[in-house]
Amino acid sequence: MKFDVHRRDLDPSRASGGPVGIGDPGGVVLTVLGDLDMAGAPGLRQVVVTEVAGGARLVVLDLTAVDFVDSAGLGVVVGALRRLRAHDGDLLVVCPEPRIRRVFEMCDLDRVFTLHGDVDAAAVAAMDGRALA
């Protein structure tokens, strides 16, 4: 699959946990397709930079359709987290594929990110996080 990033607003009605994020314009879902490597990394980085500059503070990064990730790809994910936290935002990662999860684990990044099974679970977690904040 050719590398691409699709963007949509985080749809509160999809979350099973209730009216997540209603009235919150800063929630966005970025769906990554293809191989997240040195070739794809700059494209994703640019999308994240643009979204944060445009006001996004909660980004759900959906890696469900990613075929491959290496350290160049993980670097962008780490960079996205740093960028969002610097703006008092947060990044949630959706990664159900064991092959992709394994790369996070090999770099110990599963202890930095919670890897969610789907976008709904990430949205619920985001809501919980904000309730606690």
């Binding site: 290496d70 350290s71 160049a72 993980l74 670097g75 962008v76 780490v78 960079g79 987290l81 740093r82 790369v103 090999m106 770099c107 110990d108 930095v112």
Partner: peptide
């Protein structure tokens, strides 16, 4: 410190 490592993970991997 860990989050500063946006690159350089490759050799460790």
């Amino acid at each position: 410190e860990r989050l500063r490592h946006e690159s350089g993970l490759g050799v460790a991997l």
